[in-house]
Amino acid sequence: MATRIFIDGAAGTTGLEIRERLAGRSEFELIVLDDAQRKSESSRRDALHAADVAILCLPDDAAREAVRLAEGSGTRFIDASTAHRLADGWTYGFPELIGHHKIAEAQFVSNPGCYPTGFLALVAPLVKQGLLPADWPYTVNAVSGYSGGGKALIERFEAERAPAFRAYGYDMAHKHRPEMKAFAGLKHGVIFAPSVAPAYRGMIVEVPLHLGAMEGDASAERLSAALHDHYASSGVISVHDGSQVSELLLEPDAAPSDAMELFVFSNAGGWHARLVAKLDNLGKGASGAAIQNLNIMCGLPEETGLRL
């Protein structure tokens, strides 16, 4: 019997990509509402109660309301919003870090943010292994394709006078910072410098490190080896030492991808390092992560239906 899936917010960018990835998969039966039903609370409640798994692609307040509407149903959730990433009773949906078994057993799974996906993939395993200090003041520099900014930003960048580069987050209060700190196990919040470039999709997240100023004997070579070991069994995340790479690009017409590449660049002595994650903000950073979590929750091979 097919698993019934309801995508609440299926008309948005993330929802549309999830629906596209599920198209033609016989393991799932999609519950689809028309335009009028999507605006009806009772229709949404009925769909949420009828679903085996609901995937929320909504603003934070609407995601919380969807969970309330489903009370008493036993429906399992994957929430792509920020609403439940640090909430009690929710499992953080990053299987390579949290553990596949925890997601397989969870009723409530919260998708990681796109920027935190890159940062945590790089830093969390190294802090856990004691190779990087938990009390270091980390900085994150990142650039994303404009599709991550929602309809208004998409329209702005596709307009005739779209900006070549947009930096933001100068209030130091970006909503992704709390999950970066929490799931990397850090003492201090990160300094996060996000930006957007005129490419539809794609993301580069960088963490510069002055290893020579840290206590201990961490080197770029050791960091690279540890990341290789941590992700050795992953079919989604790959690790490169950076020696054969001179530059990383965001292509305006890049194809969708659910993979993520990690790089460790260093100077000749190995005491300065740049940890870099390259991913698709709509793939492993959003829709691809939701499909990966859905597969795990339904007991299916996690790479099924992913663009790798």
Rank of each mutant, 00 (worst) to 15 (best):
T3H: 00
R4W: 02
A11M: 12
G12L: 04
T13L: 13
T13K: 09
T14V: 14
T14Y: 09
G15S: 11
L16Y: 06
L16H: 09
E17R: 15
I18D: 02
A23P: 07
G24F: 04
R25S: 10
F28Y: 02
E29D: 05
V32R: 12
L33A: 08
D34P: 08
R38I: 07
R38C: 10
S43Y: 03
R45D: 05
D46S: 10
D46H: 00
A47P: 00
A47K: 06
H49A: 11
P59G: 03
D61R: 12
R64E: 01
A66V: 05
L69M: 01
F77E: 02
D79R: 03
D79T: 01
T82W: 04
T82V: 11
A83C: 11
H84P: 00
R85M: 08
D88E: 15
Y92S: 09
F94A: 12
P95N: 03
P95D: 00
G99C: 12
H101C: 00
K102M: 06
I103R: 04
P112M: 08
P112C: 01
P116C: 13
P116L: 08
A124K: 06
Q129V: 13
Q129P: 05
L131D: 02
P133L: 14
D135Q: 12
V140F: 04
S144W: 06
S147H: 07
G148V: 13
I154Y: 09
A159V: 10
R166V: 10
H174T: 14
G185L: 08
P194C: 02
S195K: 04
A197N: 06
E206M: 15
V207L: 09
H210W: 13
L211K: 02
G212H: 13
A213V: 14
G216W: 05
D217G: 12
L223I: 08
A225N: 04
A225S: 10
A225Y: 00
A226F: 00
H230L: 05
S233I: 11
I237F: 04
S238P: 03
V239H: 07
Q244A: 15
V245A: 15
S246F: 09
L248N: 09
L248D: 08
L250R: 12
E251F: 12
P252N: 10
A254E: 06
P256A: 13
S257M: 11
D258I: 12
M260G: 07
M260A: 01
A268N: 14
G269N: 13
H272E: 15
L275F: 07
N281D: 14
N281T: 14
S287D: 05
G288C: 01
G288H: 01
I291T: 03
N295C: 03
I296A: 00
C298Q: 10
C298Y: 02
C298S: 13
G299K: 10
E302D: 12
E303G: 11
